[in-house]
Design a protein around this nucleic acid. Structure first.
Lengths: 254, 254
DNA sequence: AAGTGGTCTAGACCACAGG
DNA sequence: CTGTGGTCTAGACCACTTC
């Protein structure tokens, strides 16, 4: 207790003690002093080794957890599960618009909607069984109520078919409308992107040439139970749209 | 201090005290009792209000930080920055293969490589100035050394041109080779996806018809300073490839 | 039963922001 | 200068795992 803070003496940055401890432990794991699957010393032991309180040691171990090198279990101990800090790339979507990649001044305009029964092809697209009923909503996405962005087919489970009444009032995405009106909570969205060439009907609706290359974006929305409750299929003329993703290396560790 | 744990008395789940406190505060913010930009009571005050120690209060406030409702600054206080917990979607890439979306049994086969000077079009693609030198590596991606997956043009800054000697030895991605051999650390990758139709030369190399629709994936790799050190442009015949992204709702809050 | 990590208290000193 | 949050100590009881 004679030295609560040695910061004045320490070389460069005045690092908190728990970060120092975390750094030491991390380097020891990286250098192979502790191997995979091995238990780290107990908090108790580390307290003694570093002459630190449990609080400090636990803060340090929390860092090792955060960067994926150890896991901790009450009763059993702290186990090494990776010999290097994990450096994952992550895509952060801060707003819903980033998921849809359309600006807020675009809206959907419904062209047609009807309940359909899935055949094998559609069932595969919806990742469900054939013979099921889904409500299909055909629509155009418009920028400033005029410029045609893309053709979108939206499939929702028939119990949610009345969402169609809320589409186009504002720029709220359809999956959000389903969430809000039916109490669904979406847990996961799968986005699949492929290329193709446009059918005559859709090409006409978008005022482009038939067979023009297009980008197809399929979004599958899963609820809390993992069940798909909505699938949207958007077809974009190649020259009008590109999909972009920003991946940042996970900020982890100390 | 008469009641260290009231768990036996509490109704349902035996929630830790800090989660209870976090819940109360969160509901108070959501209900408008604390408004945006307002300072929350100090830790000191919350300790008294909840008859809890600073540790407990701080753990609670940490939860509110984690779900993006408050920020905290030494000296100034705890400020409300959102009236609802943020529910972001995130894409987690656990392995590099998920970034490239090719299985590990594919490899690059270099067709040609030369140093080129950027014109305006290429400069725009590389997001750099025209007149710069970049090293261009033309290649095919092969599955099991035979089946042609896609055509890939890779541009690296000329000082890294010798990476070409390491390509194809194993399935290590080129950007990783640059990282390893030149000490680069990539901080960010931007992925841009668009559709197009294939040039005669590339169509021949991939044994598909000219003008066939294709998916173009452009990946821009940024180093620690944000500088782009590599750009790859992959062209996939439409029927052979689709790009898929899995977004999961961020697990936040209590 | 013994030992682990999870929660919690009541203190303390410090760096920083603000008037 | 005062008060904020950031770091840290030395205790304590508990839930859980393991033997």
């Amino acid at each position: 207790m004679a030295e609560t803070k040695i910061n004045k003496a320490s070389a460069s940055a005045v690092l908190p003690r728990y970060l120092e401890v975390a750094g030491v432990l991390q380097r020891e794991i990286e250098s192979g002093l502790f191997v995979l699957e091995q238990l780290l010393p107990t908090e108790q032991a580390l307290c003694q080794r570093f002459s630190a309180s449990r609080f400090t040691i636990r803060e340090a171990l929390k860092r090792l957890m955060d960067n994926g090198m150890v896991n901790r279990r009450q009763g059993s101990g702290t186990r090494v599960i990776a010999t290097r800090p994990s450096e994952n790339f992550v895509q952060q979507l801060d707003t819903i618009d980033e998921l849809l990649q359309y600006s807020t001044d675009t809206r959907l305009s419904v062209i047609n909607n009807e309940t359909v029964t899935t055949d094998i092809a559609l069932a595969s697209m919806l990742q469900s069984s054939s013979g099921e009923d889904w409500h299909k909503i055909e629509s155009l996405r418009l920028l400033n109520d005029q410029q045609k962005i893309c053709w979108t087919d939206i499939y929702v489970r028939p119990e949610y078919k009345s969402v169609v009444n809320y589409i186009g009032k504002d720029s709220t995405p359809v999956f959000k409308l389903v969430e809000n009106h039916f109490g669904i909570i979406s847990r996961e969205v799968n986005v699949q992107i492929q290329a193709g060439s446009m059918s005559k009907q859709h090409a006409q609706a978008l005022s482009v040439e038939e067979e023009t290359p297009m980008l197809i974006v399929i979004r599958r929305y899963h609820d809390e139970n993992g069940r798909i409750y909505e699938v949207s299929v958007s077809e974009h003329p190649a020259e009008r749209f590109s999909y972009s993703i920003n991946l940042t290396k996970q900020i982890k560790g100390n």
